[in-house]
Structure formats: C-alpha cells, structure tokens
C-alpha cells in the first residue's frame, strides 16, 4: 500500500504530515522522500544515515575550447538558446542552466568539439529513524535537471526494501511537473494537503486534476484552518464538489511548526492542533485499511 502526500503548493505541510503519518504507522513503515530539490524528510524524522550512493544523470555537454574552430553551426541547432558566443564570434560555450541535454548540437559540429560528460547529480540515501521506520531520500545537486529520474530511483529503492506488506509513504514535491508525476505513479491513495489559503486551494485543484487524470483515489486534509473562515469554507465546498473526502482539518498553530526541532511529530503536540492532526492521520490510516481489505 502506497500513500502519496502531495499538495501542488509548497509549504502546505506535506513533509510534516508525512512524518506524522509514518509515526502513526510505526516501525514497519517505509518513507520515500521524493522532494529531491528540498529534501526535509530526514530533518522531520531525525533520521540517521545508513547508506548513501551517488546518482548520475544523463550526459551534459560542453564545448572543448581547444577543438572548437568557431564555425558557429551548433548555435542554430540548439532550440533552447543555450549556446552563447562573444562579440568576436570565435568562441562558443554552452550555458548549462539553459541546456536541455538533447545533444542536437553534437550532430552539427564538424570537428567533434562538443563532448558529453556525466557527473554526480545527486545522492540516494537510506536512513534509519529513531521511531523505527526506514527513510529513503535523495538530494539533487542544485542546478541539475533530472529530478524526475531521481524520484523514480527513490521509489524503486523503497519498493525493493519493502518486505511485501509495508505501508510506503511518499512525500511528493510541490508543483505538478515530472517529479510530481513520478511521485504519484503507483500510488494507491493520494493524500492531498490543502493549505487553507487562496493559493492552496488553486494549487490543490490543479494537483487533484492531475491525480484524477491518472485514475488515483484522492483524499484530503485541510491544513492551517482558522486564518480566514471564508477561505476555509470555500475549500470545504470545493472538496465536496470534486468528491474528495476530507479526513480532517488541522488549525493553524505555531506549536506544530516547533516540533520540527524536537524528536516529535505533529501527533505528539498537546492542544487542539495536535489532537486534530492525530485524528486526521488516524482517519487516513483507517481509510487506507479499508482500501486494503476491499
């Protein structure tokens, strides 16, 4: 059983909620932190590194200055405007931040001055959490562009170490792009974390449209309620209209934020917010159990 926690919007509470879910499931649980751009699962779960290995992306390209004859044929071949030249038009170079790594330029270079290179684009790690669960996480080197591929590797590793019946909790990145699609694929349940703001509503509707298009079962938790009653209501109505069952609402409370710094998750927080987080998480797991039975 795989539950993917996603939101569309960043900062909605995905990682903290994934940690709270994991803490409720207990030591048998596997957490896959798929936000490889901003991997905070290890912080939320106080994980200790067990093993770590390099991740290599596909080739990047560079123009070897000693071989380049300055003919400029590579430049129009690049549809991404990633090839630059100076005023003399004698030297050409590839702007890595714009390069899509298609290799089209190499087909046009008459002297083979454009060479592919591979480099370590990130690390894939397995860690142990004090609460007993296993965390698979990865970190992309900033500026690298193959986060979808790295997410696939995180997912595959989580599946490999699964003895067969464990609950896998996937913490998805924000947005609706390729790393998000890679996080949603294979999920039995998508848990939508709706930030109770106008942006949170807009982004969660885009995410739920994506997940629905992938035939996913979607449930929701509304986070940070109580800031604006009108927005809270709008979100409740929108969830009903989209036939997305709401498993719980968690009020905005700075107390929840502060548990990041301690050896705890949201379900350990005293007071209303903690109790509601605990109830919401329990409702999600009950829903998941029902799905497993049927």
């Amino acid at each position: 059983m795989t539950i993917t926690v996603a939101s569309g919007k960043g900062g909605a509470g995905k990682t903290s909620l994934a940690a709270a879910l994991a803490a409720s499931v207990g030591s048998s649980c596997i957490v896959a932190d798929c936000d490889v751009d901003a991997a905070n699962g290890a912080i939320a779960l106080h994980a200790r590194l067990r093993e770590s290995g390099p991740y290599f992306a596909g080739p990047g390209y560079r123009i070897e200055p000693s071989l380049c004859i300055g003919c400029g044929r590579c430049m129009p071949a690049c549809r991404f405007n990633a090839i630059r030249t100076d005023k003399t038009r004698r030297t050409y170079l590839i702007a890595e931040e714009l390069c899509e790594r298609c290799g089209a330029c190499t087909d046009h270079c008459p002297v083979d001055a454009i060479q592919g290179f591979t480099k370590e684009a990130g690390r894939l790690s397995v860690s142990d959490c004090p609460l007993g669960m296993t965390l698979i996480h990865a970190e992309l080197v900033p500026g690298e562009d193959t986060s979808g591929k790295l997410v696939n590797q995180v997912r595959r590793r989580a599946d490999t170490i699964n003895p067969g019946n464990a609950i896998i909790i996937v913490d998805a990145p924000p947005g609706i792009g390729c790393p998000v699609i890679a996080s949603l694929s294979g999920a039995d349940i998508v848990l939508l974390v709706v930030d109770s703001t106008i942006s949170g509503l807009r982004d969660s509707l885009r995410l739920s449209e994506l997940a629905a298009g992938m035939d996913k079962r979607i449930i929701a938790i509304i986070n940070k309620t109580g800031l604006d009653e009108e927005i809270d209501n709008k979100i409740r109505v929108a969830m009903t209209q989209s036939s997305i069952p709401v498993m719980g609402e968690i009020p905005f409370d700075p107390l929840l934020r502060s548990v990041e710094e301690k050896d705890l998750t949201w379900i350990d927080v005293a007071g209303e917010a903690g109790l509601k987080a605990k109830a919401a998480v329990r409702a999600v797991l009950e829903y998941a159990q029902m799905q497993m039975i049927y």
């Binding site: 751009d37 714009l98 690298e144 924000p174 947005g175």
Partner: peptide, 10 residues
C-alpha cells in the same frame, strides 16, 4: 518556482 532543479534554474 520552488526547488533547485530545472524550473527554478530557468
């Protein structure tokens, strides 16, 4: 956009 991969880079 958030993150540090291609969308943010661009």
């Amino acid at each position: 956009p958030p993150g540090v991969s291609c969308p943010a880079t661009h």
